[in-house]
Design a protein around this nucleic acid. Structure first.
Lengths: 116, 116
DNA sequence: CCAACATATGAATATATGTTCATATATCGA
DNA sequence: TCGATATATGAACATATATTCATATGTTGG
């Protein structure tokens, strides 16, 4: 499983000033939530303001159930927040970090993809 | 499949100043690459400087093959860049966007996770 | 309370994905 | 050229995940 030998050439970088492994795991879990086009479209739609489930489903041209499932994942990850008003539940971005992450990724896309 | 009715209450946000759907798909694909703990650990390790494959494998305590497979994904996504020197291939972060994305996510984790 | 509407959720299914194993390619030294 | 080392890759397998369908929960108006 681990065909590795010690005493190799590049013995440079080993300052453990990097985030510990558990945080890195959480970080990958966070990005995993961003790593689905349906959820990205939901988050992007919500950057304009809160929206209810049916309107999200309509906007994404997807079933209500699918959207609801994805909203649960976003909610659990602390990325969106529900606000109930009668029968309707309005969702909004939970904090500004979400926008920042989206924008950081978008910047990379726009610079790498050759789209300009 | 699409049990949605028109003429709903929340008829607010519909300015299409949001990135078009293809870009959002690319964006989700980008985050998908960040959404794996092995790849996150590789990227984080590389923020300190370039490193060869065997050392990465050693650092992650994983097999060389697994790391190589993940490096290919990172390379294809334009996140890391290889530099050959004899038999060894050194990998480094391709551009500064990578760090920015990592930091944006990390900020969210550290503020949400209650770790302070 | 009951019907209608809005949302949430469990089970099932199909697809995507990460790791392992075996092997291929590439580079260097003798 | 041959053996050793470093990396890359294809196939297989096990696991994770997104969507659908059916149904449950919650809310309002009559």
């Amino acid at each position: 499983m681990n065909n590795i030998k010690k005493g190799h050439i590049c013995d440079a970088i080993n300052q453990s000033d990097e985030p510990d492994i558990e945080v890195l795991y959480d970080l990958s879990e966070l990005f995993k939530v961003f790593g689905d086009s349906t959820r990205i479209r939901i988050l992007t739609a919500l950057t304009a303001g809160e929206m209810c489930v049916l309107h999200l489903a309509e906007h994404l041209e997807m079933g209500q159930s699918a959207v609801s499932h994805q909203l649960r994942i976003l909610r659990t990850a602390g990325l969106v927040r529900p606000r109930r008003e009668g029968k309707t539940v309005y969702y909004s971005l939970d904090d500004d970090h979400v926008k920042e992450i989206l924008e950081a990724g978008l910047e990379h896309i726009l610079h790498k993809g050759g789209r300009f």
